[in-house]
């Protein structure tokens, strides 16, 4: 089944808010070489003016990919995940994510276009906090390789 271009303009929400824990922040830091104290030590984070430990820069991808999955795994999207290649990624921050944040996400399908045998898809995931204030926007492009390859 080909990629469904009629999904352009559709939106998908994270089924339930993502609660940022100190443990998840520390685990992501350890896995990605983010060694700064403020990822692990609450006092180090509060001394910089943050409410709690600060998540590493790309931590938002956890939430974004959960939200994007609602679109990508929807059978009606026509996306064969085994043929997906990640093209690009962008994080635009209003503020850093900190432990204790309860984050919601909505993924907007901004573009679905054919390029030869392939399809290129752009999604934009808006991540907001419990007060419905913007935190970070995650824009991702993926390429779905065609059957010809």
């Amino acid at each position: 089944m080909p990629v469904n271009t009629e999904k352009q303009g559709a939106s998908f929400s994270l089924p339930q808010p993502y609660e940022v824990s100190r443990e998840a922040v520390a685990e992501f830091g350890l896995a990605t070489g983010a060694k700064a104290e403020y990822h692990f030590d609450t006092e180090a984070a509060t001394s910089l003016g943050y409410r709690d430990v600060v998540a590493p820069t790309t931590f938002a991808v956890i939430i974004a990919q959960k939200s994007e999955a609602a679109y990508i795994s929807d059978p009606d999207s026509g996306i064969d995940f085994s043929k997906v290649v990640h093209g690009s990624e962008q994080f635009s921050f209003t503020r850093p994510i900190v432990a204790g944040d309860v984050l919601s996400a909505v993924t907007h399908v901004d573009g679905v276009r054919s390029a030869g045998d392939n399809a290129m898809i752009t999604t934009r995931t808006e991540i907001t906090d419990a007060a419905e204030q913007p935190v970070v926007t995650v824009t991702s492009t993926i390429v779905v390789r065609g059957d010809g390859e």
Binding site: L48, Y50, V54, G87, E89, Q90, F91, F93, T139
Partner: peptide
């Protein structure tokens, strides 16, 4: 860490 406003790349 709050100094970062935008971070992007292509794979």
């Amino acid at each position: 860490p709050g100094a970062i406003v935008d971070y992007r790349t292509r794979f």
